[in-house]
């Protein structure tokens, strides 16, 4: 599903060039649940952004479902993200002035989906994440775990085959974090959604089928997870 071939990413900083990823090769199969681990600044978030087409590599190629992302223009990459990828962020990134239902509907609205379809999808997703009774609440009225579940529901709105999660449990306590991981695991198992999750938390990483360790921009280890 995902193929990274000789991917490098270099950032130009005032102090000089900083290489976030170096000649990285990586293959992620369909339906895998990958945890990417590594210390701060190791390049794991950069890798996630490259996978989602948020940024382009300085060298090498990132392909998702056989499509080379660097061959797509800006708009095509946006549409790729809209239809193929769901994002989950550490700090949820919900819009504070929108209700839970409206936040979940956001990608569908951007895609100009019919109102009925939006309504049905949002209801289904909120049911799926256990928040059907919170549809009309604002994010500020929810707990952190609930907000992250809204973010996951939003990530699922366009039925993506890939979810990219950046520290999804980073802002949550252990118990709530476990709930979110269970939800991701269920989506991976039951709906065969490929999940790539960046995390610092070793316990969280145990939910993955494979753990990739990155250090100084290089993949140093790839091990099967406990759930594999």
């Amino acid at each position: 599903m995902i193929q990274l071939s000789k991917v490098s990413k270099v950032f130009a900083l005032e102090a000089g060039a900083f290489t976030a990823l170096k000649d990285t090769d990586l293959h992620i199969g369909r339906g895998e649940f990958i945890a990417i681990m590594g210390p701060s600044g190791s390049g794991k978030s950069t890798m996630l952004q490259l996978l989602g087409g948020l940024d382009l590599p300085s060298a090498g190629q990132v392909s998702v479902d056989g499509v080379a992302l660097n061959k797509l223009n800006e708009k095509e990459r946006t549409l790729f993200r809209r239809t193929k990828v769901g994002f989950v962020f550490q700090n949820y990134q919900l819009l504070p002035m929108m209700t839970v239902a409206e936040n979940v509907a956001l990608p569908l609205a951007a895609n100009r989906a019919p109102k009925e379809e939006i309504k049905d999808t949002v209801n289904r997703l909120l049911r799926e994440v256990g928040l059907e009774d919170k549809a009309s609440r604002f994010p500020s009225q929810l707990s952190g775990g609930q907000q992250q579940r809204v973010a996951i529901a939003r990530a699922l709105a366009m039925k993506p085959r890939l979810i990219l999660a950046d520290e999804p449990t980073g802002n949550l306590d252990r118990k709530t974090g476990e709930g979110v991981l269970q939800l991701l695991t269920r989506l991976n198992r039951e709906e065969q959604i490929t999940i790539v999750m960046v995390t610092h938390d070793e316990d969280a990483a145990k939910a993955a089928s494979r753990i990739i360790q990155i250090r100084d921009g290089e993949v140093v280890q790839s091990t099967e997870g406990v759930l594999a």
């Binding site: 948020l54 800006e74 708009k75 946006t78 809209r82 994002f87 990134q93 819009l95 951007a110 366009m158």
Partner: peptide, 16 residues
């Protein structure tokens, strides 16, 4: 800015 980033991440186009 983060909101806008998120919107772009979930598929809102630059034009939108």
């Amino acid at each position: 800015i983060r909101e806008l980033g998120m919107m772009r991440a979930v598929g809102v186009t630059r034009r939108q």
